[in-house]
Design a protein around this nucleic acid. Structure first.
Lengths: 241, 241
DNA sequence: CGTCATTTTGAGGTATTTCAACGAAGGTGG
DNA sequence: CCACCTTCGTTGAAATACCTCAAAATGACG
């Protein structure tokens, strides 16, 4: 294990895919230097939050930027119709809280017990201005989130619920911390959250899950843990957009 | 007209909504200083392109970053099913070409005759590292694009085609150069492009257009120009997500 | 162990998709 | 300038898949 890229799991980190090719293999790695992570740690504080806690609300004054150390949170908007659009699930290495006009645009709630790093906005942006390399990593991270959002839009535009769910499972598998030990995928969020993310009704998600199980593509060991039985056919279904 | 904020329409520019509130009114303005725009102009070249020209292709080596001076382009992906997902329409002040791993992730084609500024990637990123203020504006711009992508996802997740189209019209009205002179909206793209953007079939877009017209919310003066007749009810329909 | 949220199943309604055919428009070349 | 051709736009009718509503079962949590 490379000493120069030591991993302190409790320091702020980012993980993304760079603009430029860098000859490296498939794995996106933490992209910050130890110095940068310590600089971030200096201006931020670590906070531990229980499940189902509202981190911030839409239109609230955006005074902080957050980085996920561990756990899972969801970023969502409640729509006038009563429906809920889940814009993103955020995990280890993810950044959230970038606002517009000084206000947050989404609500964020914890799903599991979560540890966050919380940075005051002003010092954070000042640090970015002082450290262009750090800012560049943030830019790469946000660009990557933009791609993810576009992929999600492609999933939502599909007509078939099982196909959308297959895309979601592969999406979750890819962003899992461990490289899918034993082909199982953790799904910490509720079925309703998945529905909100995929633009489906709750019932459609449940029926799509049953459908994937009936076709022996996956097996739900429990509501929050699914085993991939036939990765090829699952990928084929997900790719048949 | 403020002299200090002179506008040279042919120099690179960005328009976005800042993180921090800055007391300014509703209008997002070009955010770059004259110096920054000249620095960009130094490393880039202006190119004029005819309509329907492929600017670059998915998976091609990403050697350039582009900024739209005038005209309209679309960023899209062709899916295995033969469908086309239009991820964004780009206009004056928009930036595109940010890649992953040195490859573009979308295709980009001109819609109208278009003028672009084209920057070689390496000098561009080096300039960002030298000028953190410039990089910060790019970060803000990409963040804003992420919001737009999320809004689009909300539109796609809707079930009713007329509602999705209403959201699209308001989306286009907001990003129009002129503040909607006489409540007309230009739609340079084809109906198929709109369908690809909204996750609808071409026929559904046409029927939704007819529907909005039948209900006297809008009137199509021509296929690429629509007049808003009842802005309130149009906004209400768009907001009834 | 009781309460509440989440999950599951069933049946009918409804919107869009799909398929097909036609009409219009824009661009190209003779 | 006209004719051709390709692309885009339009309309109709049937099929599909999800949504909605309602009710019951399961699981989580104090």
């Amino acid at each position: 294990m490379a000493v120069s890229r030591s991993v302190s799991p409790s320091l702020p980190a980012l993980r993304a895919i760079p603009f430029l090719e860098d000859g490296s293999p498939e794995d996106p790695r933490p992209l910050l230097t130890e110095d940068q992570r310590h600089a971030l740690a200096q201006i931020g504080v670590k906070v531990r939050l229980p499940p189902r806690l509202l981190v911030y609300q839409e239109d609230a004054r955006a005074d902080w930027i957050f980085s996920v150390i561990d756990g899972a949170v969801k970023s969502y908007r409640d729509l006038p119709s009563g429906k809920r659009s889940v814009n993103a699930f955020l995990f280890h290495h993810d950044l959230f809280g970038l606002a517009e006009r000084g206000k947050y645009v989404n609500c964020v709630k914890t799903i599991t017990r979560t540890t966050l790093y919380r940075f005051p906005l002003k010092p954070f942006t000042e640090l970015l201005r002082r450290d262009p390399g750090l800012q560049f990593q943030v830019l790469i991270k946000v660009t990557h989130e933009l791609r993810e959002s576009q992929r999600r839009a492609i999933a939502i535009a599909r007509r078939d619920a099982p196909g959308r769910l297959a895309m979601f499972l592969i999406f979750m598998e890819k962003r899992a911390l461990e490289p899918a030990r034993g082909r199982t995928i953790e799904l910490p969020m509720s079925r309703s959250d998945i529905a909100g993310f995929l633009g489906l009704s709750l019932e459609a998600v449940i029926r799509a899950s049953a459908d994937l199980e009936r076709r022996h593509l996956v097996a739900f060991e429990d509501r929050h843990l699914v085993r991939v039985l036939d990765a090829d056919r699952l990928a084929k279904l997900a790719g048949a957009v």
